[in-house]
Design a protein around this nucleic acid. Structure first.
Lengths: 212, 212
DNA sequence: ACGAAAATGGTACGGTCGTATCATCAACAG
DNA sequence: CTGTTGATGATACGACCGTACCATTTTCGT
């Protein structure tokens, strides 16, 4: 047998080349030749590791969602596990905003894939459509937890808040992406809405807690 | 001179053909030949009325945003001008949700254009990026109006609510579009969040108005 | 050492796409 | 009635794209 090469690693390298060129020129404009050039390999190699373009795109999507999940998890972990439930929730929601180049790419390309999925059954069947459900469950769980700890204002429905906040975060992310809004203003809006869900901070005068 | 034909009308017909085929197969997949066939004219005709594909796409975008604006305006008008400010706001937000085939197309294609605008300066310069600002102003104005009428809960910031609600509506629309959520559940979430902004209905026991 | 098989390169094919070219038809002005 | 000009049709061109085919190198089991 010949040169023994780590297929998985090579596929990852090529997928990352795909992501780079897609981020630069748009997902609709990437060709196999572009990906090959970006990865520094021959066109034939890309064909060798991914027989067809469709499979390359699918793998690129999986790679992207994996990276994104990792990023969100890292942010949430950095927010600390035990303390302030609100900090965890804030980290979760803010992680989705396109604040730096990496998160811009996530938002841009995942949205591109989502748009393609509307007319492509193979993409529509991909799990990234269902992933938000997991995030929704997680956020709803966190909210319910905070609620049982008495941290939320009265009348809050955890599930509805989770769905609404995630949708808001996604919507704000898009408006940041297209340059309609700055990342800071988007974050401020998110913070405001969390303020309307959580009680005012406990270290404030306790009288504040009865009425605002 | 020959057959005298209404250029504007013909351009509109072709643009609507573009919208139809784009809705069916995705904006990325439409070619001039598809548009020509859908409009029942020859390829040459499409070239004649729009010299280049880029101009066709730009015109299609303008046509689309115009139609969308009309639809939203009609819905808001149908909600009545004078009565319940909340009804007007609800109409505004719900009109953006992909509930029927037409609004699905709006959401699908406008999102497609927005994604393209990330890497296309001509599209990015198009006014549809700035249009949401107008909607935002309108919604903020309505909220402020309702606030001055004493209809809102205490502590509400009209601008932040307007931005957040529009982003939420857009985000919910996308999740409906990709089939992650039903239009009904999206509408329910929106209603819930409006309930958290507006006072409980006045025809309830007045005691409810002091605290909930 | 050697041959089987994995890995890689080079290149060509068929199709499609946007655009350009050439030609024809139709209708009003003179 | 006729010629100018707008409107329309048919077709060709050049580029690119995804894929397939053929060749070559490389390396390890035997």
């Amino acid at each position: 047998m010949p040169k023994r090469v780590d297929h998985a690693e090579r596929r990852t390298e090529i997928a990352e080349a795909l992501v780079r060129v897609a981020a630069r020129r748009g997902l609709h404009a990437v060709g196999m030749r572009d990906v090959a050039a970006e990865a520094g390999v021959s066109l034939r190699l890309v064909q060798y590791y991914f027989e067809t373009k469709e499979k390359l795109l699918l793998f690129g999507l999986r790679h992207l969602t994996g990276k994104f999940r990792e990023r969100v998890a890292a942010r949430v972990r950095a927010a600390g596990d035990a303390p302030e439930p609100r900090a965890v929730i804030e980290a979760l929601l803010m992680a989705a905003l396109p604040t730096d180049e990496e998160s811009r790419t996530f938002h841009h390309l995942l949205t591109s894939y989502a748009v393609l999925a509307v007319n492509d059954r193979a993409l529509a069947a991909q799990p990234f459509i269902k992933d938000p459900d997991a995030a929704e469950d997680a956020l709803a769980g966190l909210l319910r937890q905070a609620q049982e700890a008495g941290l939320l204002r009265p009348g809050v429905d955890a599930r509805s808040e989770a769905v609404g906040l995630l949708a808001m975060s996604a919507g704000l992310g898009t408006s940041v992406l297209v340059g309609q809004r700055t990342p800071e203003s988007a974050a401020a809006v998110l913070t405001y809405h969390l303020d309307r869900v959580f009680h005012p901070a406990e270290h404030d005068t306790p009288a504040r807690r009865t009425r605002e």
